[in-house]
Amino acid sequence: MSSILNNLSAIGASRQLSISGNQLGQVIERLTTGKRINKASDDAAGLAIANKLGADIKVAGQAQRNTNDGVSYMQVADGTLDSVTQLLTRAAQLAQQAQTGTISDSNRANLDAEFQNIVKTMINIGHNTNFNGQAIFTSVPQTLTVAAGDYGILNLDMQVLSPDAVTALGITTSNNLLTIGGAGTVAGLLTTALASVSTMRASIGASEQQLNATSDVLGIQVQNFTAAMSQIQDANIADEVVNLTKFQILQQSGTSALSKSNQNAQQVLALLQ
């Protein structure tokens, strides 16, 4: 039926042109942002999953940084105890020398002066060695948290060094090398102290290996979470380029069809002549 009130073909062409225009705009938006989902209406379920994966990535990434900080903490502790081992070794050498009867009391006093400096240095190390403002050698157990919430990331609570390093060594400024007997007592304490430090360093080494393994696992999780989110959220550029060409052609053909539909209405005038 021909009508001058309602040009149904033009209405249909206009509607299809609007649809292809919206689809073209969506394709351009995806190519511009690189994302398949730019708003909830693009894919509501996909957006919810992508948001959850995005949170997983952030939490796992922070957990990995916490773990790496823990490794650095351990490395500072181990390096410090290496210095303590050298000090204890020198002190043991002085104690051994002070036990011999071939040196005078004045010589022992000189040996004791160096020994007392070593003890004071170890006490200073024990009280003032810090990492990011946190004391390393303390009687309070240190807890390292590498995950939180329900994100499925490995949880690791670990005591770094529970005993105070200096107190545990059992050497104070009251010990001295002024006598053969005193030097013998110190020598025994130093043997125990060296064994204690070796045990501490072994514990630190084991904990550091555990942290490195945990960091590797967290890195794998970050990679997998990112890959999963990319599959859902990222635009397939090859497909979008194809769609861009398709909708550009539809826009052009739709515009042409709408023009033709408007011309058809003019034919009604021929009936009035």
Rank of each mutant, 00 (worst) to 15 (best):
M1G: 14
S2D: 09
I4V: 15
S9D: 15
A10S: 13
G12Y: 14
R15I: 07
S18Q: 15
S18K: 14
Q23S: 11
L24I: 11
L24W: 08
G25E: 01
Q26V: 12
V27I: 02
I28T: 15
E29K: 09
E29N: 13
E29I: 02
R30L: 05
T32R: 12
G34V: 03
S41L: 09
D42S: 06
D42C: 10
D43Y: 03
L47W: 06
A48K: 12
I49S: 09
A50L: 05
K52T: 14
G54M: 00
A55I: 08
A60H: 00
A60W: 00
A60N: 08
G61M: 03
Q62M: 04
Q62W: 02
Q64M: 07
R65Q: 14
R65H: 12
R65W: 08
N66S: 09
T67S: 14
V71A: 11
A77K: 03
L81Y: 03
L81K: 04
V84P: 05
V84L: 02
Q86H: 12
Q93N: 05
Q93S: 10
A98C: 04
A98M: 02
Q99M: 05
T102N: 10
S106T: 08
R108V: 04
A109W: 01
N110Q: 11
L111E: 01
D112K: 01
D112F: 06
A113Y: 07
F115T: 01
N117M: 04
I123V: 07
N124R: 05
G126S: 09
T129C: 01
N130Q: 07
N130Y: 12
F131P: 00
F131T: 00
F131N: 05
N132A: 06
Q134R: 14
Q134V: 13
F137H: 01
S139K: 05
P141N: 04
L144C: 05
A147H: 00
D150S: 10
Y151K: 01
L156R: 10
L156A: 13
D157T: 15
D164Y: 10
D164H: 07
T167K: 11
A168S: 13
G170D: 00
T172F: 02
T172E: 04
S174Q: 11
T179E: 05
A183T: 10
A183I: 00
V186Q: 05
A187Y: 08
L194W: 05
L194C: 04
T199S: 14
M200R: 10
A202Q: 09
A206Y: 15
S207Q: 14
N212S: 12
D216K: 08
D216G: 10
D216W: 02
L218H: 10
L218F: 14
I220D: 09
V222S: 07
F225H: 08
T226C: 02
T226R: 00
M229R: 15
M229A: 14
Q231W: 00
I232V: 08
N236Q: 07
V241E: 13
V242Y: 04
L244P: 06
F247E: 08
Q248G: 01
L250T: 03
Q252D: 04
T255H: 07
S256A: 15
A257S: 13
L258T: 04
S259Y: 06
N262H: 10
N264D: 08
A265C: 05
Q267N: 12
V268T: 11
A270V: 09
A270T: 11
L272P: 04
